[in-house]
């Protein structure tokens, strides 16, 4: 019974305080403006470069045997 009362009380508290909990209206537009600058694409590409390179190397190693056998001409009997 006590658990139900506590749960109901907490739910009421959350519902009452919920509308007050908002993101900072002052800094959010400034943050968005600093993210979406003309350098956005450059930043994105530069940031993803190491991950893309590792992905290429990993997939290249995995598919290397299949690619090698496809590119190497098989001797005709």
């Amino acid at each position: 019974m006590m658990k139900v009362v506590v749960a109901a009380w907490l739910t009421c508290c959350l519902l009452l305080t919920g509308p007050l909990a908002q993101a900072c209206r002052v800094c959010r537009p400034r943050v968005q403006a600093q993210i979406h600058t003309p350098d956005y694409t450059t930043n994105l590409l530069v940031l993803l470069l190491p991950v893309g390179l590792v992905l290429l190397i990993g997939l290249g190693l995995f598919f290397a045997p299949a690619l090698k056998s496809r590119l190497t001409p098989t001797p005709r009997p």
Binding site: C27, R30, V31, Q34, I35, L47
Partner: peptide
């Protein structure tokens, strides 16, 4: 500052 920290957080 907070704005720069949040921009870094995004990236």
């Amino acid at each position: 500052n907070l704005v720069a920290a949040k921009v870094n957080m995004y990236w």
